[in-house]
Amino acid sequence: MVGKEVGADDTEREDKSATIIHTKTPIQVVHTLFVVAVVMGISLGLEVIARSAEVFLPWVALLITVLIVFLLPQIEFDRIQPTFESGVKGIIHGSLSVLSIPYMELVVFLMIFPSVNQPKGYGSAFVKGSLLGGFVIIIVTVLCVFVLGWDFTARHTFPSYTLAKKIQVGEFLQRIEVLVAIIWFVTIFYKLAICFYASVHGMAQLFRLRTSRPLIIPLAILLVVLSIVVYPNIVYFRVFAAEIWPFYAITFGLIIPLAQLVVSVISESIKNGNASE
């Protein structure tokens, strides 16, 4: 079990599946299978990925709803205590990781916007999607605290998986934690596909290539190797994610886009000023 915790994906935490479900499978095999699926999706194009996401989204929503409904009987409101124990500083420190892991990573969607064929609605769709995602994060966190208690939640690597183990409806519906694993597989596939698409097309644009297709296979091999190399062990991963990743993510997710926005606004206004004179 501990040995299989070694290594995780560069962009994704595929070690969830390797650590909890496929405990005897070498982690490279899990990564390779996942990357093969992603490569197939990416070489078919962005539209195929978007359409398949339309197919899978209702299932993920259904599974999350099942998880929430079956956990409702387990809620004990006493477990919310202690609240505001560490004050404002502690709350800001805790929200730093929530800010960085899903929200600063949304910058990767900027790579997809140029290929959206309905240029009107994508801004509001982006905001709606991130709000919905944040809502799910809040619900799962609240359930974790109310069902497991804050100490268990803090101690587990994947509290939502432990949460699903708690489901017990009558004597017949229990140990359905693989539902959470299915949610992970589906959602991680899309996250990895979008990140991989962004890296392939970003590299093609960086070197001004006319086609990005030749880069897919070399970058996929690179991804599988790096997925083992970048996180030598789970402690390294947790320290990196807690201490370094928020600042790294803010650089790319907030500061650089903001600087580009400011520069574009300034250059636009200079252009307009020259035109009106």
Binding site: F207, R208, L209, R210, T211, P214, L215, I217, P218, L219, I221, L222, V225, L226, I228, V229
Partner: peptide
């Protein structure tokens, strides 16, 4: 006749295979 793409492809492929061997 996309020679730049061809160079990029071969260099990247060689690099990733080298990393594979190293691992």
């Amino acid at each position: 006749r996309q020679f730049k793409e061809l160079w990029m492809f071969s260099l990247l492929l060689a690099f990733s295979l080298m990393l594979c061997v190293a691992q």
